[in-house]
Design a protein around this nucleic acid. Structure first.
Length: 490
RNA sequence: GGUCGGAUGGCCGAGCGGCUAGGCACGGGUCUGCAAAACCCUUUACACCGGUUCGAAUCCGGUUCCGACCUCCA
């Protein structure tokens, strides 16, 4: 199998991928904190890593794909000091924290199913791996790289950086972090427990009103945000696995801390390749509560949002995401989404033509160049936009054949079919178009089309236009072509 | 304020020294009673100022904007 190049954040270079164990890949992707309905920002990572996974599968690899659910320990910032995000939402809705987690984990997975994202091989939850997290924290303490204060445990970044390079992933320099603070006295005021401002929590003591808490060697508490991914990836993928993925926003501190935790506990880094996808922006602005421009995935499907005039399909969203390279920011707007939708329809239409295409003894067109170009594009740091551009070129050529301007033989026809099946559906994961007209409606519309055709033959255009207009007002659009009249629900 | 990344035609978005992706919109055409749809063809570009080079959207320096993370905390 030909090689695949991937950009590794750790080395800041594009590297040729080599799995640790031949033909097998262990892959860990940071999943959502389930305290709210899935929004647009949740969608890109899963789609990108799904395509990467599918691409590797197509190359013959066996993949164990782990994506976690964070249902504990991720705290709300500033105003909600020390309060668990899940717990906060639970109080508002007057239900159990685990009920919140279940509800939003379900809706997250429902959205993933809609977008044809293959479910993870394993989907571990932080709350189900408290013991593993405690064990890992203990190991770090035993190595003298974490300390306990008043029932909480903190990772000792200063001690760690004497033996390892804290900041190797994010490019941050500890000296800068420390020196940059400049006014440490202020930092330490509210942070008496920590030895240094840049230390991070491995375990937090729970206050009595804290609902989500577990027993530990340090008393009742709950795990820090970073340790869950470390503990769960070790459990299911081993101390060293192939690919760790996530959003660029997690690069620091989360992934940096994961590396530090693993090195502190096991003496080596958890993952060989770190892959980070970029963010989605909306109308040139970042998604933010204050800007009131966040869009939930369900709103996108239904169109119930002030930035949308109508709803869009999950396949459109998926295609939209893949039309940009995963390491670039992607600006969302309804206009851009409509452009993707139209383009997608163009590909569907071309694919549909294949079954009725005239096969010649010889070909005036070749498709093998497209196959090669697609393989090369995907192998070059998962360049999906280039691969999609080749599919559009394929569609263009198919249309030329359909118009009788070019010809193809059976070999090329089959290659075109294979490109759609293999690349479009299997790797890019775009679902095949579905005809969802009811048989009854089908018959009724066909009858009206026949009556209208008769009217046209008699040059009774008043009647033929009436039929067309009446149907249109009922959501059925008629389109004449050389071969006859087609219709669709509008 | 710190670290890193980015500024490409009306919009989205590839490219990363020469051969100027792709989609949508616009325009021209085919088809058509008309319309719509579909298909074919096609215009517009590389933030700004210098430099390197035979040649730069691509490399170097500066300027201006933009973003992510950090500067609170977990």
């Amino acid at each position: 199998m030909s090689s695949v190049d991937l950009y590794n954040t750790l080395s800041r270079k594009t590297e040729t991928f080599e799995s640790i164990v031949p033909d097998r890949i262990g892959m860990y992707v940071c999943g959502p904190t389930v305290y709210g309905p899935p929004h647009l920002g949740h969608v890109r990572g899963p789609i990108v890593f799904d395509v990467l996974r599918r691409f590797f599968i197509s190359k013959g690899y066996q993949i164990r794909f782990v994506r976690n659910i964070t249902d504990v320990g991720h705290l709300v910032g500033d105003a909600d000091e020390g309060e668990d995000k899940l717990q906060k939402q639970a109080r508002l809705e007057k239900i159990e924290p685990m009920e919140v987690a279940q509800t939003y984990a379900d809706s997250y997975n429902w959205v993933m199913d809609q977008m044809n994202v293959i479910r993870p091989s394993i989907e571990p939850r932080a709350s189900g791996h408290i013991i593993e997290q405690i064990e890992m924290i203990s190991a770090i303490i035993d190595r003298g790289l974490a300390y306990e204060v008043n029932g909480s445990v903190y990772f000792d970044v200063s001690a760690y950086s004497k033996i390892e390079n804290y900041g190797e992933l994010s490019g941050r320099v500890l000296d800068d972090l420390v020196a940059g603070a400049g006014n440490q006295s202020r930092d330490l005021e509210g942070q008496v427990e920590k030895r240094n401002a840049h230390d991070f929590a491995l375990w937090k003591k729970a206050s009595p009103e804290h609902i989500m808490q577990w027993s530990s060697p340090w008393g009742k508490g709950f795990p820090g945000w970073h340790i869950e991914c470390s503990a769960m990836s070790v459990k299911y993928l081993g101390e060293e696995f192939d690919i760790h993925g996530g959003g660029m926003d997690l690069l620091f501190p989360h992934h940096e801390c994961e590396i530090a935790q693993s090195k502190a506990a096991h003496n080596h880094a958890p993952a060989k390749y770190w892959v980070h996808h970029n963010m989605i922006t909306i109308n040139g602005q970042k998604m933010a509560k204050s800007l009131n421009n966040g869009i939930q995935v369900l709103q996108l499907f239904s169109g119930e949002h002030h930035l949308l005039t109508r709803g869009f399909g999950a396949d459109v969203l998926r295609f939209f995401v893949l039309q940009a390279h995963y390491r670039s920011t992607l600006d969302f707007s309804e206009e851009a989404l409509i452009a993707s939708e139209k383009g997608l329809q163009r590909l569907y239409a071309a694919e549909k033509l294949l079954s009725g295409l005239k096969v010649s003894n010889s070909s005036s067109l070749e498709f093998s160049d497209l196959k090669v170009a697609i393989e090369a594009a995907l192998s070059d740091d998962l360049n999906t936009p280039i691969a999609i551009a080749q599919l559009f070129e394929l569609a263009r050529r198919i249309n030329l054949v359909n118009d009788g301007k070019e010809s193809i033989d059976l070999v090329n026809l089959n290659m075109a079919k294979e490109l759609f099946d293999h690349v479009f559906h299997e790797i890019l994961g775009i679902k095949a178009a579905i005809e969802e007209n009811s048989g009854v409606l089908d018959g009724v519309v066909e009858l009206l089309i026949q009556l209208r055709a008769q009217a046209k033959t008699e040059k009774n255009y008043a009647l033929s236009d009436q039929i067309r207009n009446e149907l249109k007002s009922r959501g059925i659009e008629l389109m004449d072509s050389k071969e006859g009249t087609n219709w669709k629900l509008s």
